[in-house]
Design a protein around this nucleic acid. Structure first.
Ligand SMILES: [Mn+2]
Ligand SMILES: [Mn+2]
Ligand SMILES: [Zn+2]
Ligand SMILES: [Zn+2]
Lengths: 153, 153
DNA sequence: ATGAAAATGAAAGTCAAAGTCAAAAATAAG
DNA sequence: CTTATTTTTGACTTTGACTTTCATTTTCAT
């Protein structure tokens, strides 16, 4: 099994990390990383595992689990602890920070950025002498489609 | 065991709910509710259980657990899913909504309100045609005290 | 006081997440 | 290329935070 990587650019940070830490790159790990970074979604471990399984049924849950943690360690993935009781992982775009609108009905996730909100957050923190390291802002509710569906019934 | 309630006012909503649903009020439940509402903190089930256990060692984990869910059902408590991997419960002040600053070092929780941020949140939601039902905003970092401690070492 | 209904507690069950370890794969050395 | 060393894998076990079960106890309307 020899994996053809879709986009070598995305893997750059991984290879840097790998060299520094004396890791070895198995074909399975390579496949998972490549798939995860190119899909660019908010995967739970379970979800990613099941999708990958359809393509390559030789990859175990353990390996998917460990690869997501590895990507988190080398800064290519980020954990999202939404109010679902399980962790999701999303690729860290080289680009920038964003927050989320999450549909309680269909699970759709919309990303947004709002520098005004971020500014106000920092302002609040300063008022309390608090040093902000990270933050979570999630708006839960119904996406446009689910609102329409609800009105119909 | 006969519980002396510290503040009957706080229990009003519970008694309304109780009557509507044909519940019975055990002394243990009464003690837990009274303690929780008067302490007015952000308890994990485990924490509340251990504190209560020091005062009344005849109360089980199950009962604390079930009482917190009951309070959530009757609108007297709210679940807080901070990024710790466990749920906390806080009394719902008759007053108003607020968000949280959370110290990653000592666990201290500071509450704040900022209507400007809330307005901007609604503005963002509207832009995406999204109907917001609830939201979570938490700022994680270091409180003043923990920053000082860190500088000293 | 009594008995139907609700609450309790000890124990067992869930389930996502994390750890274990022998076997397999990758890569460094010869 | 072959061997040796190190890392990775996968099946399995363990953990921990809930959540449910059910026999026993408590509540409270009559
Ligand atoms: Mn995102
Ligand atoms: Mn609070
Ligand atoms: Zn939706
Ligand atoms: Zn602190």
């Amino acid at each position: 099994m020899k994996v053809k990587v879709k986009n070598k650019m995305l893997l750059k940070d991984y290879f840097t990390y790998k060299s520094k830490r004396g890791l070895k790159t198995s074909q399975k790990r390579l496949f998972i990383i490549d798939y995860f970074l190119n899909e660019d979604r908010h995967f739970s471990i379970e979800e990613l595992y099941h999708e990958i399984r359809k393509i390559n049924s030789q990859i175990s849950f353990s390996t998917v689990y460990r690869t997501l943690r590895l990507l988190t360690d080398c800064g290519l993935a980020q954990e999202c602890c939404f109010a679902e009781g399980m962790v999701r992982y999303e690729p860290v775009h080289k680009a920038r920070h964003h927050d989320h609108l999450i549909c309680r009905k269909c699970g759709r996730i919309i990303e947004f950025e709002n520098s005004e909100i971020e500014k106000l957050q920092n302002h609040v923190a300063k008022k309390f002498g608090f040093l902000v390291v990270s933050h979570a802002l999630e708006l839960y509710g119904l996406c446009t489609m689910c609102q329409k569906k609800q009105r119909r019934s």
